[in-house]
Amino acid sequence: MFEIIKLHLTNKQHATTMLLLVFFAIILLLTTGQLVLGKSGTIHLQMFYLGKFLGFLGPLFVLSRGRNGEGKFFSRLPLSRFEVFFGKLIYLMIVYLIITLVLCAGIWTIAGVLKLISPSLQFTGMPTFHSLFQDAAAFIKTMPLFLLLAALSLWLQKWTSSNMANLLVVLGVLFVFGLLPVVTALSLQHYSITIPFNDITDFLNTYKTPLITAMELGLFFGAMGLYRLRHFRNY
């Protein structure tokens, strides 16, 4: 398991560094822009909250063999499926931690340096331990659902092609989301069949979050189409 984490980390060393550099460039650019154009003496230092993003793309990485077939490579090794799975999962967490912490440290350093030069500057949007904790929680909370969906697709691939399995999972999710409001509506309106217009608006308001989730799902399956989950020791 340790070897898997190590291999992944060394492999993505370069990419991770590049990603961090890009984020830093954006932060510095935005900060400089605000300093040059700024009137109020308040600098908004935007933190990148990656928890949710990595939380839903990570499972793809954990379960897929990836563009280069890494999953297949590992499947040839005498490692149990659980070792490979947890190895990748832990790698994902480590990467999330590294990126988030390095970015925070960078932002704090930038803020500190600016404060030294010009003590009158005010900062907003700074990452705090509280916001970091929330982001980490979002990361942890987002992952299981998407892990489950990816696993479901992988399992379905025993019987059908990978594209068909993905499609089936999407349809399944759509079905559940489509049925939920109907069931709820029916149970709410148990005694009157007519649904007034106002109720529908209320209803859609209630389900705003699921709609956003559905969009996220769309994105996830789009990405899943690009990756192929096949060949991860195909049982």
């Binding site: 993505k12 370069h14 990419a15 297949k72 005498p78």
Partner: peptide
């Protein structure tokens, strides 16, 4: 499926170069 990895200690194969980590 559960015990294949134990056998793979003794069964090896040459992977395709495309499967390798580039970095």
């Amino acid at each position: 499926p559960g015990n294949t990895h134990q056998f793979l200690q003794k069964i090896t194969s040459v992977a395709s170069p495309a499967e390798m980590f580039p970095g």
